[in-house]
Nucleic acid binder design. Structure first.
Lengths: 113, 113
DNA sequence: AGCCGCTTTTACAGCTTTTTCACAGGCTGA
DNA sequence: TCAGCCTGTGAAAAAGCTGTAAAAGCGGCT
């Protein structure tokens, strides 16, 4: 893993991630996450509004090559969704793109191009 | 699932394809495509204004030799036409050249061939 | 040891996509 | 015009992907 020791805080809508402080705030409330959950959420928020493959997420968070049979990313996306849903009911942050990967989006669709 | 990592964005009239981001924009709006649809559209746009045989398309997208009885290319051209028609009614991007193949064209016709 | 919390793996149901099939209709050369 | 190959397309079958609960694994702690 080659991430800098100090990683900047990221804000995406209601979600604020401060990886360096091991802290996630949702609407100002602390969200209790495990290490893996925090790292995966950080990776997703760093890449917000983009479709990210499982391979990229796995490499970034687990630090080793992805095996297609490995479902860890899916399982942790599930955990994050549960916790985010409890924090902000009715809102969905992590979107599935079938066959491609996942995309974190906090705001309304951003127009691109 | 994902092919060459960094493929450049392509723009052809109203259609912009960003294969590296798994993204297609039509008049700035995201067009939701499946993996095969995206790859086929990318192959066509990369060869825009040229007649492309099914053999070439099949090799490029499916990565294996074409069998003459295989209608996959036709089926997916149909799917792309439907989705493009919904995005830009009245415009047709993918033209059939009977006995030869297909041709993607976004701009006005330059000449007949 | 037993318990606890976290991570990884497994299993399977439910979906979506892809492939294949069948047939209607189109095109072309003779 | 007609026979015969080509193309469009809906639909069924096959393949593949995702969500998720539950089991199994792994340290650390008391």
């Amino acid at each position: 893993m080659h991430r800098p020791a100090r990683r900047p805080a990221l804000k995406a809508g209601e979600v604020e991630v401060r990886p360096g402080e091991f802290l996630v705030l949702v609407n100002g409330e602390r969200l209790h996450l495990t290490v893996r959950e925090l790292e995966l959420l950080t990776a997703l928020v760093e890449r917000r509004d983009r479709i990210v493959t499982r391979e990229e997420l796995y490499r970034e968070v687990w630090g080793e090559p992805y095996r297609k049979s490995d479902r860890s990313v899916d399982v942790y996306v599930g955990k994050l969704r549960q916790k985010l849903e409890r924090a902000v009911p009715g809102r969905s942050f992590i979107h599935t793109h079938f066959g491609f990967g996942y995309r974190f989006a906090a705001g309304p669709e951003r127009r691109r191009g």
